[in-house]
Each structure stands twice: as C-alpha cells, then as structure tokens.
Design a protein around this nucleic acid. Sequence first.
DNA 1: GTCCGGAAGT
DNA 2: ACTTCCGGAC
Length: 327
Amino acid sequence: MLKSEIIGELENWYAENKRPLPWRSNPEPYRVWLAEIVFQQTRIQQGMGHYLRILERFPNVEALAQAHEDEVLKLWEGLGYYSRGRNLLKAAKIISTLGEFPTSATEWQKLPGVGPYTSAAISSVVNNEKIALVDGNVSRVLARVFLIDDDIRSSKTQKELQHLAQKIIDQTDQPGNINQALMELGALICSPKKPKCPVCPINNHCELLLHKEDPNKFPYKSPPPPKTQRDFHWLWASESNYLLLKKRNESDIWQGLFELPSLQNPKKKYPAAKIIHKGTHILSHQRIQYYIWDIKKWESIPQEFKAFALNEELPALPRPLQKFFEN
DNA sequence: GTCCGGAAGT
DNA sequence: ACTTCCGGAC
C-alpha cells in the first residue's frame, strides 16, 4: 500500500521545485532552529522579514544568548505567539551554556519551544536523522493521499498520521529532504483550497484522486471552540509629550509586550474622555473590541508605568497598538 | 466574515 | 485530552 515510487517522485520534485530559502542554502543548526521557531504557525511570506532581521541582529547563538528579552520581543513584534520569542531566548542561553547544539530530535526537544514537530524538522535536516514530522501541511497531504476521513484535529488522528509519516521516512536515506518535500508539496501544490492536482508529482498515487473525491473536502476538520469576547479600554493623554506603558505579565495574551494604562470604565474617572480610535482585533480564540481614549491630561500618574517619548523607539506592542502608533 | 498553522499549561 | 496562546491572507 505504501509504494516506494512515491519517495522517488518526492525527492525529484523537491530537488527541482523547492523554494530558495536562506536556511536551505546554508543549513547550520542555528539558522535551521531559528527558522523552525519563526515559521511555526507562520507563513513564509509573513515571517521572512522577521527571520532576516533576527538573523542579522543575532548572527549566532552566542549573540542571541546575551540579548535582553525586550529586544527579542521587539524583533518578534507583529509575529504573534510571543512565547516563541521568549522561549527562543531561554533556549539560546541553554545551548550557549552547553557549548554545542543538540544532535538528536530527543535532545532538541528538551529545549523550551521545541516540540515534536520542531525537533524532527531540525534533526532530520541538520543531522540526517530518520525521524518523521507532521505539521499542518503534512497532515493535509497524507489525509488526501491516503484518503483519511477522520477528524484532523483529534489527537488520535494525529498519532496515526505520525505513524504513517514515520513509515515513509523509514524508507528513505534523505529524511530531511522528504520531510521538507511533504511540507513544500502542501504549501505549493496540495494547498488547502484549489490544490493543483494536475501538476502534483504523486497524483497517480493519490487515493483521493483515484476515488474521484473532492480535495476541498479533505481533510475533515471539526469546528473550533467558540471565541470568547472581551473589551480593552486603553488611555492616552494627548496633552503630555510622552506615553505611559506597562509590561503585560499576567498569564494572558501578549505576555511580555507593553500596553497603555487601561480602565474598565474610563468615563468614570475622566468624564471628558473621548474615544479617538476603536477597532476589533480577532485572535483564534478571542474576539477583542478595543477603544483608545484621549483623556487630555493625567489625573495621577499610575506608578507602575514607564514613560516613553513618542519620538523614540517604543518597546514591543500588541498588534492593535502597534498599528495605532504607526500613524 | 472565512481559513491557516505547533508548543505548553492544565 | 483539552485549552490557550497570534496575526494575516482571502
């Protein structure tokens, strides 16, 4: 059932069609690790600018290990999932202390921010380890090629896909290339919508095509949990020439980023306050209505806040605030 | 409005 | 095993 020609087709297709990405031409552990962290949950186009800026500012793990978290988060600003940036720094300090990079997926996975996917991706590419990875692209490719109609979100299905992927990787002496080929195929050909089946290198092995099924219906994904709704009321005093910002520390979104002072009901303390900007910010799990109030003048300066001149570089801000202060 | 994508906390 | 963490493309 698992035809070996598939491997050869994938190897050839990948050699001819892979995108020329910076860590592919020079797959040092540092560059591959950084790429895998930046591009978790992130499209290449969206994260490439961030990746290049981080690599330029911190050309190696020793340079990164000495960074301050605020600077890493500033470089991460706008990418989302900020625990990736915080864990990147933690892991850099660990690697720097060890004096060398891990050399197996098991060792890589001990680092913060490195899970099953990332450890397999790095070790198969850097160390030629025969270890399979299953990311969103690979899930979709395998579900279509092998006509798997189970819920792609369930951990049971993910386990089965992991097993299936490992059977493929066991048959190749180029695990890094086959892992990347499956991901690249999912990104370039076997896309979520309108897959380019006519030019797919393994279309004659694809169960979905052989059964004349509709690719848009695979894989099946159960609906996500409902979003929680919340409001943010941020305060800004137009008559002062600085901004008050405080680091977000709680176990909540945007941890480590800075934000304006907030009040549940600004009108109570500042009856003359006016909303100068409002918007909706959507996360996968929250729907945020946010309001920025002009209170003209501070009644009293909240102690825990730091003042930043408006013309100096601001620390990392949540995306809605970053967009607001861009203008 | 719709969809997409890994790790960690619990 | 389930929930919480982001932002952008379409």
